[in-house]
């Protein structure tokens, strides 16, 4: 088995490349982090302070940006007056619910597609991923009609179902690849050890944990950030954070402070989730268990 430490050889070219990489990363960080920093700071600022900006090009007066008395009134306003507690919970329920349903159904389906040969299997598989090829807007109107007919508009169940419709094919697609990489022998050993087919399936689940981790992230991200489904199917009873935030933009009064605060509470959980699940994304768990 090969070692995990890659050998690196230094050449002049590679040194120049390293410098270039560092500069690129620095710019990239600035590009991605600056909006987040401004958003976070602004959410703690009074409206007046938020618009006190130094003139363009005057870098010496940059201190002005940090010169303010922090206030939590925007957060207070969001949670106490505007009902964001409910929207926050709605977001969690919709994203979490669809992730759980998609993972459970998706892993079983992916396992079946990976392990069994049957006529029309490749067609079935193509049909499953093809449902993800159409853009969401294209199916939104018919979906709305169907959901209305079933009284699912404005309900948690409806929103979860809508997200699952879009996440499940994705789950099957990702997880099938991971199951394909798990040797049959491990399940066979498990069945000889005395487990049922279903127990054998569960026994190899830890081996596809990286796939499940990756999928859960993507699935939750999709649902959490989604605006279209949330505003059309979830509107009313199951309003999530993105449509709720948009409602803060009113014709006569754009509530910048609250919008910034809403941005922070929408972003933060996703960052924490990313940190939490990172270790599941490390692949290579099956290495060395089976003689190749």
């Amino acid at each position: 088995m090969s070692s995990r430490d890659a050998v690196v050889y230094k050449t002049p070219l590679s040194r120049i490349w390293t410098i270039f990489t560092v500069i690129f990363i620095a710019f990239y960080l600035l590009w991605t982090l600056l909006p987040l920093v401004i958003m976070t700071f602004s959410s703690f600022k009074d409206l007046l302070a938020a618009f006190q900006l130094p003139p363009v090009g005057a870098f010496s007066e940059i201190g002005l940006f940090f010169n303010f008395t922090p206030t939590t009134k925007h957060y207070y306003n969001l949670f106490v007056n505007l009902g964001f507690t409910t929207y926050f919970l709605n977001s969690i329920i919709a994203a979490g619910g669809s992730a759980i349903i998609s993972v459970v159904l998706g892993s079983m389906c992916a396992y079946a597609l990976s392990r069994y040969e049957f006529r029309g299997k490749s067609d079935l598989f193509f049909w499953i991923i093809s449902t993800r090829m159409a853009p969401v807007v294209a199916v939104l109107v018919p979906l709305y009609a169907i959901f209305r007919g079933m009284d699912l508009i404005g309900t948690q169940a409806g929103l979860i179902l809508a997200f699952t419709t879009f996440n499940l094919p994705f789950a099957i697609w990702i997880l099938k690849g991971f199951f394909d990489n798990v040797p049959y022998a491990i399940e066979e050993a498990s069945m000889v050890d005395g487990s049922t087919r279903f127990q054998a399936f569960r026994a190899i689940l830890p081996l596809v944990a990286p796939g499940i981790g990756a999928f859960v992230i993507l699935c939750i991200l999709f649902a959490w950030n989604d605006f279209l489904f949330a505003s059309i199917i979830g509107s009313g009873g199951a309003k999530t954070l993105p449509p709720a935030t948009v409602e803060l933009v009113q014709p006569q009064n754009i509530q910048w402070g609250s919008i910034m605060a809403a941005g922070v509470i929408t972003t933060l959980p996703m960052m924490l989730l990313g940190l939490l699940i990172r270790r599941y994304l490390v692949t290579g768990l099956t290495m060395g268990a089976v003689r190749e």
């Binding site: 022998a185 066979e188 268990a289």
Partner: peptide, 11 residues
């Protein structure tokens, strides 16, 4: 059974 390719549980 002992398998030709070990088939141990890697985790």
């Amino acid at each position: 059974m002992v398998f030709e390719n070990y088939a141990l549980y890697p985790h």
